[in-house]
Design a protein around this nucleic acid. Structure first.
Length: 534
RNA sequence: GCCCCCGUGGCGUAAAUGGAUAGCGCAGCGGGCUUCUAUCCCGACGGUUGCAGGUUCGAGUCCUGCCGGGGGCGCCA
């Protein structure tokens, strides 16, 4: 990597000044402004104080020493601002990026090895099987699925799960609601009043067990919705199956023998407050029934068999639940940093300018399937993924539908389609690419050409940051940037036009191919189609 | 009351470890197709990053307090 070369040159210069600094401690960063060069280091600012030196003077000394090494990759250097050392690199480093992208290809480029085979278990969505998936749940689907793709690309063995709460009060109530609609009787108290309940009830055979049938019906609907937006799971974990396997008793047994369980007030408690929870939690109620917490503990305990790091994607309305689960996992002997909860801010659903509160009583909701039907999976996924999971998101189905054609996803896909069009047109004209080894890449000097390469050069670190910060939106924003650079290039740099010099044409054909690889990688990480034609 | 998250141009948002002149999209304004897809490109306009302090050579980013929005505080799930 070029940054290592630069850092090493700086470290050598330091030692020539009689100062010992490891190259690995020297930070290189990408300046936010082009005029500040290709790479920049703040090392003079960081060290000047302890050395008792003026940062600008120190920087000047370092620049002179590095210049003496006359590295071919450095075009020029300068000291700027309070003492930044800016490196302006020769275009060659970008030409090297082109070579990297093309030789490593779609599979190999931007595959940071940070994961190193470590395994991650990722649970997301896990909505109760009591109705269709609503459009808020779609956010967790898009997010979790994309995050899993990013993890895998970084070398984490990743296993995704959906936990089905197919026992307990809610499923009973849902079954009873279906039965009531089918039989024309009153809904049970706190029953499900949504329109879909009546619809589904009309499909339900009379001999069917409403609870079992209802779960299956809901689950089928959820699966279909997720599949339609390209979200897949490795495993659908059934709570019933878990409980029937005796996992609850096993977990409680382990907690009890470890000494974390108390009996008082007629109930059984877990001392989660010993691990930072704000209070202890009930495991078994005084009526003898376990709380939902018990199967959840058992489930999470079991997930460690399918991943060293167990990660939950949860809505903000569940954040209070994290300390108790973290406590329970620690009690069961799992190291504290092996359980992680990603808290995503909830989605506000709007229709026609009015907020739609999800309500069992009135049954209002916006379903994911409705959203997908209206705008298609790519618009929906890109809308979900474009912004950080830390910010609240408003999905206005009317706005999204009416503005679907202006959705930024088309900007990106159009760029990819244009690349495909170039390929088709090349075939029409009988133009083909010569072997890359025969190409003179140094003819790529147009700023538009270099911009594409500059953008591609950031992909490996973008993928790495996206994995580390659990932030698929970094990839979404990156690919938008790539599309912008490509459209600019396409506008200013003809590839196939008859007045294009042949050597330039060949180099540009390969440059276009490198951009295609970038789009293919990015769109795949986002789970969005890469169309050949639009 | 206590706890968690968020506050960035009219709207929606970006900014790894604290870095230089806070990027981008939409809406609105002005340009650009006889030449590979105009679902595109270019330009202009638009900001004291909620407020007040603090730490630092340097703060959208860290700390404290306040204001505003959302969520959570059951022997419910």
């Amino acid at each position: 990597m070029i940054t290592e070369v630069l850092a090493a040159a700086l470290a050598d210069s330091f030692s020539e000044l009689g100062i010992d600094i490891a190259a690995s401690e020297i930070q290189m960063e990408r300046p936010s402004h082009r005029e500040h060069g290709d790479w920049s280091s703040n090392v003079a600012l960081m060290t000047s104080k302890s050395l008792g030196r003026n940062p600008r003077e120190l920087a000047e000394d370092l620049v002179k020493l590095v210049e003496l090494k006359s590295l071919g990759s450095i075009e020029r250097m300068e000291v700027a601002g309070p003492g930044f050392i800016n490196f302006h690199l020769a275009p060659q480093w970008l030409h090297d990026v082109l070579t990297d992208v093309l030789t490593q290809g779609e599979d190999g480029y931007a595959r940071p090895i940070v994961g190193n085979g470590a395994s991650i278990n990722l649970e997301f969505v896990s909505a109760n099987p009591t109705g269709p998936l609503h459009a808020g749940g779609g956010r967790w689907g898009a997010y979790g699925d994309s995050l899993a793709r990013i993890f895998r690309r970084c070398g984490y063995e990743t296993f995704t799960e959906y936990y089905i709460n197919d026992r307990g009060l809610q499923t009973e109530l849902f079954g009873a609601s279906l039965a009531a609609r089918r039989d024309g009787t009153d809904l049970p108290e706190d029953g499900y009043a949504g329109e879909y309940v009546a619809e589904w009830a009309s499909e339900m055979p009379h001999e069917a067990d409403p609870v079992a049938w209802g779960q299956e019906r809901a689950l089928t609907d959820v699966r279909e919705s997720l599949t339609s937006m390209n979200v897949e799971f490795d495993h659908w974990a059934s709570e019933t199956a878990l409980v029937e396997s005796g996992a609850m008793e096993e977990a409680v047994g382990l907690l009890t023998s470890a000494g974390w369980v108390d009996e008082h007030d007629g109930a059984t408690w877990l001392r989660t407050s010993d691990f930072g929870d704000e209070k202890d939690r009930v495991l078994v109620k005084s009526d003898g029934e376990p709380t939902y917490f018990v199967p959840d503990i058992a489930y999470h305990h079991q997930k460690f068999q399918r991943g060293e790091l167990v990660v939950d994607v949860l809505g903000a309305d569940h954040h209070g639940y994290v300390p108790r689960m973290a406590a329970a996992m620690e009690m069961l002997g799992h190291p504290p940093d092996c359980y992680e909860a990603i808290i995503g801010q909830n989605v506000t659903l709007v229709r026609g300018g009015e907020e739609i509160k999800l309500s069992k009583r009135t049954g209002t909701m916006v379903e994911v399937s409705e959203l997908i039907e209206a705008v298609g999976p790519d618009v929906a996924r890109f809308a979900y993924l474009l912004q950080s999971i830390d910010t609240r998101q408003t999905i206005d189905i009317d706005v999204l539908s009416s503005q679907a054609n202006e959705n930024p996803v088309y900007y990106v896909q159009y760029a990819h389609a244009r690349i495909a069009a170039v390929g088709r047109e090349a075939t029409n004209r009988g133009v083909s690419r010569d072997p890359f080894d025969d190409i003179d890449v140094t003819v790529l000097t147009h700023e538009r050409e270099l911009e594409i390469l500059r953008c591609l050069s950031t992909l490996p670190e973008i993928v790495e940051i996206a994995a580390r910060d659990r932030a698929p939106h970094r990839v979404a924003n990156w690919i938008r940037e790539l599309a912008a650079t490509f459209h600019g290039f396409y506008h200013d740099c003809p590839v196939l036009r008859s007045d294009t010099d042949e050597a330039v044409q060949q180099a540009r054909l390969w440059l276009v191919e490198s951009a295609r690889i970038g789009f293919a990688i990015g769109l795949d990480l986002l789970g969005i189609a890469a169309p050949e034609k639009m």
